[in-house]
Design a protein around this nucleic acid. Structure first.
Lengths: 245, 245
DNA sequence: ACGGATATGTGCGTTTCCGCACATAGTCTA
DNA sequence: TAGACTATGTGCGGAAACGCACATATCCGT
């Protein structure tokens, strides 16, 4: 909680906003609104029209699919590397998935209309966002692959690493129950996998808080999916500023 | 094979090409090259630069991920509703996935450069393709969900239905081995599920050929994922012409 | 018509995960 | 500080899918 109060927030904590050309950023900045994103908030319901796009800074959002029987599965996460609401830009307006806050924090939002107008100028903003969309597609694809072939423990490691990459610290506020709904597995399965990681000294946790003690250990235990997503995200977005797109 | 010889091919057998405004279509048509797409052909290798974009007409393409240990998983399929090579348009040039021909047939290809130029005009072609990209994302997302929660039999039904929707007939040339690599499961698992469907009179098959006898039966046995993909694809692309985008 | 290649069928032990039930422990509030 | 609530630990039977081995069936070329 301390971090939420003490850290001064600027839009440039979001990677995409930071990567915008100065003139574009200056024109959009007045319309960026800093908002708190508390854990569990539903930002976007399946099939509903989105009014804003969201640029997380310290928060992490999660794109879910909720099945008819109530079971859930995470499709992708959105942290300060990205933006929530790309389906607006693609002309679909809605998606069949839901967006909720997975890690409480802050972010900026902007009226959807403004973002669409800027996108439709078909300039550097569009090119940047298209690269982000491709990174998002890679993440979704790898979720599909991982769901097919990898163990709960490997998936937990992947998920922890991806979450960690979007946070400033090595700790996350997160119950095992919540992780299980993200991964779409049993809570007990997470208890077991997390216990194994704890006994190995890779993480330590207590009632809703996880601290990563040995990041390399996580990387060793996860599947290739983490690396694919990470590498591809960096390739597509990592040097966007240098490319001056 | 008969169908390949007898059917006259026109670019408008591909939905996206058919949905283009007349003037755009006329300008692109001279650069469309009809090509045979035999089963198993690799059109696009992971991480390699694509030289052409492909518009299938009677063929069906498959986007795969091949893991380090050789295991595979299908991420999405591309039939006459779509186009292969969208990562070019998004600025990434490559993807970590591979594209192969899943059902032999025909399609048109076009030099990548031309497609990119047309896309970058940021007109109706771009808007159409963005909608397609969103439909593709829905398909990938649903693959992830389905891999997490549904049985091999349900997934087989979903896969058969999606394939059927892209073909003119009720028969497909397809070994169980091939289906198993698509779904990323054991071949024996497909044998078992297909046998069950056959005993129920839903399909009949013999050595590499599957005939769907009872489409409604398939729809009854599949999971909600098929409907989500189908509905969303129709929503995004089905009335593209009416929308005059 | 035959032989080789390939596709499909089947059985079996093992692994992984699920669903359920319930015990224990940490945290928060009155 | 007592009690309620929530998070985590654990055990068990069962279902689903896996890996492997091998039998059988079908097709195709010569």
């Amino acid at each position: 909680m301390a971090i939420l109060k003490t850290a001064p927030h600027t839009p440039t904590q979001n990677y995409l906003l930071a990567a915008l050309p100065h003139d574009v950023f200056d024109s959009l900045a007045p319309h960026l609104e800093l908002i708190a994103l508390p854990l569990g908030n539903v930002l976007y319901e399946s099939g509903c029209q989105l009014q804003h796009v969201y640029f997380p800074t310290t928060a992490i959002l999660s794109l879910h699919y909720v099945m008819e029987n109530g079971a859930t599965a995470e499709i992708a996460g959105v942290g300060n590397e990205g933006v929530l609401g790309v389906s607006l830009l693609m002309g679909g307006n809605t998606t069949p998935s839901r967006a909720i806050v997975q890690t409480g924090g802050w972010g900026y939002r902007m009226p959807a209309r403004l973002m669409m107008d800027e996108f439709n100028r078909a300039g550097s903003v569009m090119r940047l966002l298209l690269r982000y969309i491709q990174a998002l597609m890679t993440q979704i694809s790898q979720t599909a692959v991982c769901n097919r072939h990898h163990s709960v423990e490997q998936q937990l490691c992947r998920w922890l690493l991806l979450t960690l990459d979007r946070l400033p610290s090595h700790e996350l506020t997160m119950t095992q129950e919540l992780i299980s709904t993200m991964l779409g597995v049993r809570r007990e399965g997470i208890t077991e996998a997390a216990g194994k990681l704890q006994r190995a000294g890779v993480i330590s946790y207590r009632r809703g808080h996880i601290a990563v003690l040995d990041r390399a250990g996580l990387e060793q235990r996860t599947c290739e999916c983490y690396g694919v997503v990470k590498t591809e995200t960096l390739r597509l977005l990592g040097d966007a500023r240098k490319l001056n797109i």
